[in-house]
Amino acid sequence: MTDTNQSELLLEIKDLAAEVQGRKVLDGLNLEVRAGEVHAIMGPNGAGKSTLAQLLAGRSTYKVTRGEVRYRGADLLSLAPEERARRGLFLGFQYPVEIPGVNNVYLLKAALNARRREQGLPEVDAFEFLGLVRDKMRLMQMDDSFLSRGVNEGFSGGEKKRNEILQMTVLEPTLAILDETDSGLDIDALKVVANGVNSLKRADRAIVLVTHYQRLLEHIIPDRVHVLAAGRILKSGDKSLALELERRGYDWVRHEASAA
């Protein structure tokens, strides 16, 4: 990890605390993510993993009570969710919502063009876009029917997750946060999804995997692994920490943290 210290600090979270409907969900969370890195945030159910992911993307249901978040030097919390997306922050949803009546592919094209406008690039036309999206669909092993359907409309759980990763590969974000992307996938689908994520690894991009299980990390190798519990990062380590968590569970981390 020594060489990455020179690369750009993409995400910097300092002493973040947040609550939802008066209930504390994050409490003093610190995290730094640099370009080129893959992080995994693990933790027991209800630890605040999804809260963190949604809060970073701009979900207004969470109220920040303390701390700050900087994304590429800017105050992330002051940006509207659509602004965060255009600046290259991508959230892969744990439960992608179905939006019948809004075409899947037109949404994707609009999302891409919103991002390109922000980058000062010309918009892609329909023909160019279709070529691009078909390439990515092949990678994600999705058939043409996805082109004509409503957003996630009637998709199985696995199809929804593939669609999230398809969107990510088209949008080429700077910072991708993938919330439980592995849940509900069989082993073949997991490999396809992991393949899609791995295809995006680059020196100027970071990926944060929020996951409950270690099995995704057999296919996407993380540089850093963090344990999130009780609203903060209790322990960080390299990929061997994930294996240890798989073997020993989470309780020992909590005991260790409370003893310290």
């Binding site: 659509e82 949803f93 919502v97 949404l107 609009a110 999302a111 919103a114 969107q167």
Partner: peptide, 14 residues
């Protein structure tokens, strides 16, 4: 609200 957030999180204008 969930649908709206999904579209915003993809960069669409409100």
């Amino acid at each position: 609200e969930q649908m709206l957030f999904y579209l915003l999180a993809r960069g669409l204008d409100r």
